[in-house]
Design a protein around this nucleic acid. Sequence first.
DNA 1: TATCTGATATAGTAATTCTATAACAGATGG
DNA 2: CCATCTGTTATAGAATTACTATATCAGATA
Lengths: 125, 125
Amino acid sequence: MLIEIDFNSPEAIYIQLRNQIVMAIARERLHDGDSLPSVRSLAGTIGVNMHTVNKAYAMLREEGYLKLDRRKGAVVSVETAGKDKELDKINDYMQMIVAQAICKEISREEITRMVDEMYEEFRLL
Amino acid sequence: MLIEIDFNSPEAIYIQLRNQIVMAIARERLHDGDSLPSVRSLAGTIGVNMHTVNKAYAMLREEGYLKLDRRKGAVVSVETAGKDKELDKINDYMQMIVAQAICKEISREEITRMVDEMYEEFRLL
DNA sequence: TATCTGATATAGTAATTCTATAACAGATGG
DNA sequence: CCATCTGTTATAGAATTACTATATCAGATA
């Protein structure tokens, strides 16, 4: 589980962490049942405070990607039940993307092709 | 030009402002050459500080949506030259969206259908 | 000349982010 | 039994960002 943090990024560290773990799951580098490093050890590895990792883990639990257990630690467990809520969230993000694309004269085909390629990429890696 | 700010949103006010103006351009409620309200008047209308609006305008200029002029004020002027840079930016956003979609078992077809519908919507309104 | 425009400077408040330290309950392994 | 690990929680401080409040400036306008 390779994590890389850009300390100069305007993106908050715990958000970068959260994003990379979501992508690792999508890329099937992390599977249901896999254990993540403990908050303390991961914090030590990447050189941040324990609470920063904890915040990312808590967020991922809230979003239905992890289950946290005092004995087993952080275990990947993707909740696919609330799919409608997820679609609403994605819809909001997508609205901004498409708005920008339209303004910048980027066609529907260019965007859907981008989506297609991205789905392929995630399946391969 | 109807602007609605959610003061309880975690999204910064100047970002909400920026987003709504981009969407207004995409929806063709704002066209190239249209003037926006002055920073002071818009700030007064929505009940925020002048600097907050100024920050949004400066960001939109930076991103190639507006031109700011001391005499004409803020004028819509969409720069479509740096299309590659825009595609890179959209690619990053899209990567996170697709990652989440894959994790939550949302299919490629569902996403591309969402994009298609969104392009239609923006054309209509 | 009075009034508008964006731009800029300064300063204060509030919220968020990150760090630091500490302690807790529960589970685990020697 | 005890040391050690887990996530969880509390508190506090530093740093950064967001927002507000005033004020001033140069340039354009009517």
